[in-house]
């Protein structure tokens, strides 16, 4: 029944999906945190930039973002992100696009977490002489992160599935392989089920694990 799978490297394809997810997740966490810090900063210019970035980027379809990295950045502006061969260039462009897009959602999740930290925590921190970056880094963000593990898990799951858009610029991840198999094999339903199952195998444990973490790290008040 599964004879048709011969000649296709499913694991390799899903491995690319995992790599896309992992690099983009780390990238979005860092850039999303920076954006959130900008959006709560006392400097109007930074607040303005953060707000503009989030509202523009999260309202553009991911496909447009990803295709722009290839057509706009690479083919028009010649941005190669330090890579030589097309496979690596496309992979890196996809990570860049996914990061740019996902970080706007990370930023907003984190900002709602910042709003759960009582204002007294900030006042106490300022009252002992901590400056703004210290207040944010030592007091506010650690508590904010703990309260948004759940929402961030949703963002991560969405990101895992969003990596399929990278197929649009020729990254050989799971969805790209699926397209090839559907083209060549006569097992449409079975192929869909296999790939759906593959994604569930990635996302379901992520969700369960982060749900557990979220309980574990929650701040008691």
């Amino acid at each position: 029944m599964f004879d048709f799978l011969e000649g296709y490297d499913l694991l390799a394809a899903f491995w690319v999906t995992v790599q896309l997810t992992l690099y983009s997740a780390i990238g979005s966490l860092v850039w999303g945190t920076v954006l959130a810090a900008m959006r709560v900063s006392p400097v109007p210019l930074m607040r303005g930039f953060g707000t503009a970035y989030v509202n523009i980027v999260r309202n553009i379809p991911l496909t447009v973002v990803i295709v722009f990295t290839s057509l706009g950045l690479f083919q028009t502006l010649g941005v190669t992100l330090g890579a030589k061969d097309f496979t690596t260039i496309n992979f890196r462009l996809a990570v860049l696009g996914l990061t740019a897009y996902t970080s706007s959602f990370v930023c907003e999740a984190l900002r709602s977490g910042i709003n759960t930290v009582p204002v007294g925590q900030t006042e106490a921190a300022r009252a002992i002489g901590l400056n703004f970056p210290q207040v944010l880094r030592l007091i506010v963000l650690p508590q904010a992160f703990r309260s948004v593990v759940g929402p961030l898990a949703s963002v991560l799951i969405a990101l895992t599935k969003n990596t399929t858009v990278a197929a649009a610029i020729g990254v050989a991840e799971a969805a790209a392989l699926m397209r090839v198999m559907i083209e060549n094999e006569a097992q449409l339903i079975l192929i869909s089920v296999i790939f759906a199952f593959g994604f569930i195998c990635l996302t379901l444990p992520t969700g369960l694990f982060l749900g557990w973490v979220s309980k574990k790290v929650s701040v008691r008040r």
């Binding site: 009582p118 007294g120 925590q121 006042e123 106490a124 009252a127 002992i128 002489g129 400056n131 508590q143």
Partner: peptide, 19 residues
Amino acid sequence: AALRADVGMVFQSFNLFAH
């Protein structure tokens, strides 16, 4: 910030760092 370090403050709601 330097001045605040020299002025101790105790709040009605304690405001200890919860984490």
